[in-house]
Design a protein around this nucleic acid. Structure first.
Lengths: 291, 291
DNA sequence: CGAGGCTACTTGTCATGACAAGTGCTCCCT
DNA sequence: AGGGAGCACTTGTCATGACAAGTAGCCTCG
């Protein structure tokens, strides 16, 4: 993990290096088994997130960071490159790196979990479970989950609330091995986040695909979401699974478009960021087109 | 741009270096003013895109690339890191880098330009301009474009077609400095891509923000898109501008959800990718929820 | 014949040194 | 006072060398 080069601090300070001291330092170094450039990047991330380095402020120059960490320019630059790739800092040749934004959204969990998203907004999520059942898979769901029609799956239908207002209907189907965990008597779907519960039990949901379109509210949707029948709803169909691509769940979620929107921010030469947004006041003035 | 180190090739081949040869090499080097690591990355990208390096194949090892380019490990590693960040290659310690996917989507232009998107799918885009006018900005548009209410703007309303089928209504407002270019008699909005036209004239649209929700078709929407009044439409409101954040256009686009959907692919520890998708056959079996 | 170790090769991390090129400031001269 | 040259400082790019750590294949030994 460490090499003789790790003694840069000592070398720079030009101290003699008796064997006793060297073994002591080895102990220290061995405890920290994260690469140096990651520690530097993490430290800078922390300082930015804490507001220690506010937006617009200049980061310490590379040479300052080198002295501060008693490192060479290599790891320091590696850390800065990582931060730049995350969009946290900008700047360029001749100009010191500058903090661009204090908070880089972590869209994955937020986009996957309604509860997580609501909490990140400071709103109160709620839910009413309408149905949880084990039944054979229909054709459409079987295709999405890469299983055979008729294989057992677990269906879960929930009405999701935001600050008590009906916001979304979630019709999720889990493969049997995952859904079984939800049938456990110890699990209360009305009180806890499903994804947090599943993560605790070792289900690693790490890739997801969301497809968005619009549908008209059918009678069931309409009465649950308290909108007129035929009202436009924003639909998200989601397939999520393990890192290796094995599907675990398929979901058909329908949002009231006057409460929730989805946003994509997009730039040339940068990765897009996606987010779910909350519209605090019913905006019926936007329902008709400009003219 | 170059240093004496650039003579690595000569040094490695252990050739004598008369002054005449050195000046000749300087000329060569000066012509190529792209950094070396970018040239290496571009070359590998090309070889992957061309299928010369198929998916699953192992890239040349770092030392091979070093010899091939007569470069040190630095630029080679920098190139590989860039490809890794783009998701093109995988692999890890002890294992050679492996091609993961041959095509990384370039979502920005595709998401911004309907024409570009249609062409990338091999479909034929069409358009019928319904209105192009210079008028004072309404309040809502003025807010989005960061100008004052009543400032002159250029409105453009187009019906977009995909293979001749009505697909989307686009109501775009440009700031006057950009919209003026569209009022030029030389510009025919029915035949060319607006974004290609603007890019040629030096308008750099490089950041965009897309907000998605659902609306009901009003009478105008309905007759143009050939759907019943009140039918659900997928709405995208887009604000695009320069890299420095200056807004250039604001648009309210309404899609037939049976033809176009939007997709977000999302993974832990990776940047999301977004795409517009085309649904070839009207899928009315999906318009009603499962049960 | 199988299991284990050994070795060659790979990538990951880091130090050091050098030069190019952009930025911003000072300071001098006109 | 204003403009320009020069300088200090910054980041960008690259070379070189070293060691750590993981992988895969060979090869010997039991």
């Amino acid at each position: 993990m460490f090499s003789l080069d790790s003694f840069g601090l000592i070398r720079e300070a030009e101290l003699p290096l008796p064997p006793l001291v060297s073994t002591w330092i080895i102990c220290i170094v061995k405890f920290v088994d994260e690469p140096l450039y990651q520690r530097i990047a993490d430290d800078l991330r922390r300082r930015i997130a804490r507001g220690d380095l506010p937006v617009g402020a200049a980061l310490p120059s590379e040479s300052q960071l080198c002295r501060q960490w008693s490192a060479s320019r290599g790891p320091v630059r590696q850390a800065l490159i990582a931060l730049r790739a995350e969009g946290l800092i900008g700047g360029g040749r001749g100009r010191p790196p500058v903090v661009r934004t204090s908070r880089v959204p972590q869209p994955f969990e937020t986009l996957l979990s309604f509860s997580h998203w609501a909490h990140s907004l400071g709103r109160t999520p709620g839910q009413r479970t309408l149905e949880i059942a084990r039944r054979p898979a229909r054709q459409e769901v079987a295709d999405a989950l890469a299983i055979d029609e008729g294989d057992p799956v677990v269906d879960l239908v929930r009405l999701r609330l935001l600050d008590g207002r009906p916001t979304m209907i979630e019709r999720t189907t889990f493969v049997e091995s995952v859904g079984r965990l939800l049938l456990d008597v110890a699990f209360d779907p009305d009180s806890s986040s499903i994804y947090a519960y599943l993560a605790e039990r070792g289900v690693d949901l790490s890739v997801a695909r969301h497809v968005f379109d619009a549908v008209a509210a059918d009678p069931a949707d309409a009465s649950l979401l308290e909108v007129p029948e035929g009202a436009p709803l924003l639909r998200e169909r989601r397939r999520a699974g393990s890192a290796s691509g094995e599907p675990y769940e398929y979901s058909d979620d329908r949002y009231r478009p006057d409460i929730v929107t989805f946003t994509i921010e997009n730039a040339e030469q940068a990765h897009p960021s996606v987010a779910r947004a909350w519209r605090p006041i019913p905006a019926d003035d936007n329902q008709t087109h400009p003219k």
